[in-house]
Amino acid sequence: MQYWLMKSEPDDVAITDLASRGTVGWYGVRNYQARNFMRDTQQVGDGVLFYHSSCAEPGIAGFARIISEPYPDPTQFDPESTYFDPKASPEKPRWMQRDVGFVRQTRLLPLAEMRQYPELANMLVLQKGSRLSITPVSEAEWTFIQDLLA
């Protein structure tokens, strides 16, 4: 099993939305490295730190799981979508998504608080210039955060 931090803007999909729906398709990823993580590396059952980004107080808002194999992100084909990609076609999709299932909501673990723990110092989300929406998390970081938010 592997572990991931996946960023979502709460104005679009918040942890409360995932809790009420039970599952969401992780759409709109338009970075090749993040896409490759979803397409090639993530596995069904992997753990997810659900992270609220681009908001007043960014941070980890809960836990989720990868619950599907990768499949084409339908927003790439929709000219009305902000995620439309004119170079993508159903025959040759460029962007993938996976379904993510709700595990539990937690108190918000703000980015500022995360920076205070030496156990989390190497997390990619805490590195200067790191803007990827999907990043791997070590087992030690995952366990520390699970214990912290228990």
Rank of each mutant, 00 (worst) to 15 (best):
Y83E: 03
R107T: 05
D99G: 00
I145C: 10
L49T: 01
T82I: 12
I67V: 14
A34T: 01
R107Y: 04
S54T: 13
P90K: 15
I134M: 09
T135G: 01
E69S: 11
R115I: 09
P136H: 09
H52V: 05
G129Q: 02
V103R: 08
Y83C: 11
P86K: 14
D147I: 02
D99H: 06
Q97T: 11
N31C: 06
G101V: 01
D46V: 02
E113R: 13
V137F: 06
F50V: 02
F84Y: 15
M96I: 10
L149M: 12
E113M: 02
R131M: 07
P74T: 03
K87M: 14
E141K: 03
P136C: 11
T41I: 14
L109K: 04
T135L: 14
N36P: 11
K128C: 04
G129L: 05
Q43Y: 00
R39Y: 07
N36A: 11
E57K: 13
D78V: 04
M96W: 15
G47T: 00
D78M: 04
F144Y: 15
I66M: 12
S89I: 08
T106P: 12
A88W: 07
I145E: 01
S130I: 04
F144N: 14
F84I: 10
R39C: 10
Q146D: 07
P86I: 04
V100A: 05
I145M: 13
G101Q: 05
W142L: 06
H52M: 11
A150D: 14
N122S: 12
Q43D: 04
D73C: 06
N122E: 12
H52W: 15
I67P: 02
R115G: 02
E139P: 13
M123D: 03
R131H: 15
L49I: 04
G129P: 07
G62N: 09
E113H: 09
A64D: 00
T143V: 11
G47F: 01
I145P: 04
D73Q: 08
A34S: 15
R131D: 01
G62A: 08
Q43N: 05
M114Q: 14
R30V: 01
K87Q: 08
M114T: 00
F37W: 05
T75K: 12
E80P: 00
T41Y: 06
F50R: 00
S68F: 02
V44R: 10
V44K: 02
A150M: 03
S81H: 02
N122H: 10
R39E: 07
A112C: 00
Q33C: 06
R65E: 09
A88D: 07
L49R: 01
L149Y: 00
L109E: 02
Y32W: 08
P136Y: 14
D46W: 01
E119P: 01
E69I: 08
D78Q: 07
N122D: 12
G59Y: 11
A88L: 10
